[in-house]
Write a protein that binds this DNA or RNA. Structure first.
Lengths: 343, 343
DNA sequence: ATTAAATTTTTACGCGCGTAAATTTTTATT
DNA sequence: AATAAAAATTTACGCGCGTAAAAATTTAAT
């Protein structure tokens, strides 16, 4: 307070009556110093308000405490939510998360990885864009820095992948829909960006075959990440054309379903699982807004708590051991059926 | 390629045939060196893949090129969207945005500011939580680091504030609703978190008075940021109690409106501006999902492009001049009426 | 070609901290 | 009290770069 200003660790060490190297040791791990000296330092910390210069620290440490976290699109509450979850876990482990969004674009994704290189993170958690990603550059990056993929898998890239078991989850909802009404058609984009979309398509086909039903894919045009818009526009067109061979539609994801619901509403079609309804619509992901659509959306939730937990656990394990994985781990988590009003 | 590895600027300078100080000058501003030397450096850059160590740079520079960007809740697509917008502008100006979300909690907000202190940003753009914010700590922070507030104003804190003109925007939609049907009641939270909510309440009261109608506030209980949930739960209750003195409801924000729409739907009430509808619902903000509600939501859009642009412009101006503002600027932007299906 | 102005080079220091080695002090053990 | 073990101190160097000052060089102007 009254003392000369604390300008660096040297000043602070003097103020606390401890040598600078020991103070340095303390900041790297408070438990590594004697209790009595720890108490002295923390007493000084209370009256002096000093914090080590993060740039000087990181310039000299072998490893930073930074962990990069790259998601494809923060504007999508699904990713915002999982990112928040992961951030919390990283902080709890004493690391510093750096959240970057690729905003749906591969250039931004590469730019994000480039930013991360500058920051020299100890590890990276990456949910890649998928089809749009520049796989060669991603591969190069993951050679440089230990990286764990989540949400969307790209074969052979990264130390591990954690995501959803689309076979299981799509199988689950297809089964449910078949048991409760007409077998579903599958509503998706013709050229999906996300690898999960391809998995889900295949899962749908397999599930329908298993149940002895004829599958039917409705593949609509559309670029980009504005899925609601695509679902609405293409859905409106198809409903106007009476192009649906079933009264039940399973959408590749909830955001398409939200658009389709909107299209159905404007077409005057009543959606729901009740007897008075003309159309059943189901989605996939249990998007944060799915609870509040009209009617609320029947869907499959992803176990993103597990995905987040295992991803963080894995990257921190690699960082601790300072050793890459020998085998690339791929673990898929099961989804849960969320029965709501729409199907 | 074949050369010995480039480990630092010294190595790189040698490789490019230029002295290290000049190379340093180049990285700080490529235009500050002669064209011919710039060409040499950039040629070397192509074959050698070197990037200056960001920690060493920031340790020595008077100012970093970092700009903090703190939003109350990234899970809300509205903030995700404005954050993205701002990030783009910051990058375009050669600065490095650092996005942090307070996740709706004042502790996290303070923690975010603390993280920013470590990073020594040249300036900060802050959308505060509002009522929940620890104003004393915010004030202290803004003394330390030049900060511009946006979205939610806190008197006297920060160099400037840019946000929406709630008087104008609420006035606009109240006027519209009165011209096209019954005067609206106002649906809001009893103890709103956001200062805008108080402004909107006052604006509603003023607008109704101006138009010679009796205002009616419906103030519901609820904590936190799960506005859809609150709108749904409390909306369901009120609709069941037939507690609405008007068939027109203006919600304090779109997320409440989305919840209320959902409640109305489940109550079997038809919402819309047509003759066959029992209820009109309007919102405020033009939330990204408002286009896809059923029916689509009539609302007022915020001019967040202007808010973003002016906020960035202002903080960069302060940084350039290295001089705080003498007078705190407060600029409010007008909203636009978005007429859709719900009212 | 001469002169002045603009750039680059050389030299040197410092930023704040991590970290290693040798020494001294403190604590735990018998 | 003697000894060993643990921890702290002292001393010193280096990280990679910004930056300042003086000297040398290049470019532009006359």
């Amino acid at each position: 307070m009254n003392e000369p200003k604390i300008r660096n660790m040297e000043d602070f060490a003097a103020a606390s009556g401890i040598s600078r190297p020991t103070v340095s040791k303390y900041f790297n791990d408070p438990d590594s110093v004697r209790k009595s000296t720890r108490a002295k330092i923390e007493a000084a910390l209370k009256t002096h308000d000093y914090r080590p210069n993060i740039y000087a620290i990181n310039q000299n440490r072998r490893q930073t405490k930074n962990i990069g976290l790259v998601v494809p699109n923060l504007t999508d509450p699904f990713f915002a939510s999982i990112a928040r979850n992961i951030e919390g876990l990283i902080v709890k482990q004493g690391y510093n998360p750096l959240l970057l969004s690729s905003h749906g674009g591969p250039e931004q994704e590469i730019a994000n990885l480039d930013s991360l290189r500058s920051i020299k993170p100890a590890g990276v958690l990456l949910a890649p864009l998928g089809r749009a990603s520049d796989n060669a550059q991603l591969a190069e990056f993951t050679e440089e820095l230990p990286t764990v993929l989540f949400d969307a898998n790209i074969d052979g890239i990264g130390e591990a992948f954690f995501g959803s078991d689309n076979d299981q989850s799509i199988g689950l909802i297809v089964d449910y829909l078949c048991r409760t009404g007409e077998p579903p058609v599958f509503f998706e984009m013709k050229n999906p960006i996300n690898p999960n979309a391809y998995k889900r398509r295949a899962a749908y086909l397999a599930a329908m075959e298993r149940l002895d039903h004829t599958p039917h894919l409705i593949q609509v045009d559309g670029d980009g990440w504005n899925f609601e818009e695509i679902g609405f526009r293409e859905g409106s067109r198809i409903l106007a054309d009476r192009g649906l061979p079933s009264n039940t539609v399973l959408c590749s994801n909830d955001r398409l379903a939200i658009g389709l619901l909107s299209a159905a509403f404007e077409s005057g079609l009543r959606v729901g699982h009740g007897s008075g309804s003309a159309l059943r619509i189901a989605g996939h992901d249990d998007h944060p807004f799915s609870r509040y659509t009209c009617p609320s959306l029947t869907t499959v939730s992803q176990d993103y708590e597990s995905i987040a937990a295992r991803s963080v656990e894995t990257i921190l394990g690699i960082i601790d051991l300072e050793k890459r994985r020998e085998n690339r781990e791929v673990t898929l988590f099961e989804g849960r059926l969320i029965m709501r009003g729409s199907a």
